[in-house]
Design a protein around this nucleic acid. Structure first.
Lengths: 225, 225
DNA sequence: ACCCTGGTTTGACTTTAGTCATGGAACGCG
DNA sequence: CGCGTTCCATGACTAAAGTCAAACCAGGGT
């Protein structure tokens, strides 16, 4: 049981939760190992558990019949996902797949709701988490609808730059996945990178990108359609 | 004070809330009258209140510098909105504007959080509400990224059809607003309506649309890019 | 060292949707 | 009863991004 407890303790959402409650969560927790490419669940399936990443990386996405995919989120260690069906008791709104070999915990809906009733602070934490997700989606919707690909790319690079705190970025995902996150396809992403390079805003080599002119990037990212 | 209480009682989110708690909410509630076109708040402003619609209609949207707008949601009587900054304590992620003369209530963040601590069932209701919103956004993102305008339109018409429970639909918004909701512009919406009409799926006259071939519409809405 | 594979880039082309401009229909107001 | 404002439809054009196909490159395994 100790492994489960340690796994739960590493989840951001559960920071500050009294040990007693953590232990009661252990009882409804399952550790899960998945390999790269493995699908955790598909959009439309009934969802009775939610997940958190102990180690590894998972992407949440929707796909069209044609095969094109739109990534909604990428989750790493300490992050939880697939909360929606817990509170709605319906289906998963999107699909999830491991981007790397990963260790996950899955937590049953029912028991979790009980803990929420007893722990208002955790409940507030969940609300804040969901709100943050909403904010991110609002941004993503606005980007998809109001901005063109190079502008979305500029915004993404600036986010990476802020996260990595350097101008010498390492792309955190393969380019095809970044394309799917930006709502486009690899060919178009490739051309957008070329365009930014030609304009002297960045330099690229492999999965590394150097930000040359952050201000111009920011200005570009601001622009609207 | 009675008017405030009656207004609060009509909000879906507060259904089933004990009277005592409703009354404690009254103290942090403000009734607000707005005229058509009036802006309630703009994306980026610090948000310390959330709102509910007593009567009228409000749209929540993001706009690009160019003037193009993307509608995220349209709220009618009984619905609440702008919860995000309550739980995150930051800015409004989008702007809100009255589509009709409306009566709203605004509820202060701080007091509301206190009530949430005392009322786990309300807290669960909020989580369900936020989850439903997330689900809707996931759908919207998928539509924007994976479907073309006529397909999005088909999906929208089917939703209207389900809501109005008839094949003889009345558009609930001016077409320009529907365009902004679908992530396009009026001209393109106009052409999409024509296309569906030419294909014999619908007939239109003014703000009325008759669904002729619901099955074909559904099939179209399924299609992906 | 070689081959295979998957990811990436590039080019030519097509399609979709946005832009701009114009005209028409409907509604409200004097 | 007209007048104007707003909304909507249409046409001609442009621009953005997707499709298809081919070449390229890099790494892992043999």
């Amino acid at each position: 049981m100790t492994r489960e407890l340690k796994a739960l303790a590493g989840i951001k959402l559960f920071e500050g939760l009294p040990k007693a409650q953590l232990e009661s969560l252990v009882e409804i927790t399952l550790l899960k190992q998945v390999k790269v490419g493995e699908t955790l669940f598909e959009a439309g399936q009934p969802g009775t558990h939610f997940y958190a990443v102990v180690s590894g990386k998972v992407r949440v996405y929707r796909s069209a019949p044609s095969g094109k995919e739109q990534i909604l989120n990428v989750f790493g260690a300490g992050e939880s996902f697939a909360e929606v069906p817990v509170f709605e008791g319906k289906t998963y709104p999107a699909s999830a797949q491991a981007l790397e070999d990963s260790v996950l915990v899955s937590i049953a809906r029912k028991g979790f709701v009980d803990v929420l009733r007893r722990e208002p602070e955790l409940a507030l934490g969940v609300m804040a988490l969901l709100s943050g997700r909403l904010r991110a989606f609002v941004t993503q919707i606005a980007q998809l609808s109001l901005k063109e690909v190079p502008e979305r790319l500029a915004g993404y690079l600036l986010l990476l730059r802020a996260a990595q705190n350097t101008d010498a970025l390492t792309l955190d995902l393969p380019k095809g996945q970044i394309a799917a996150y930006l709502g486009t396809i690899p060919e178009t992403l490739s051309r957008a990178l070329k365009k930014l390079t030609d304009q002297g805003l960045i330099e690229t080599s492999g999965n590394r990108v150097r930000v040359i002119d952050a201000e111009a990037l920011a200005h570009l990212a601001e622009a609207g359609r």
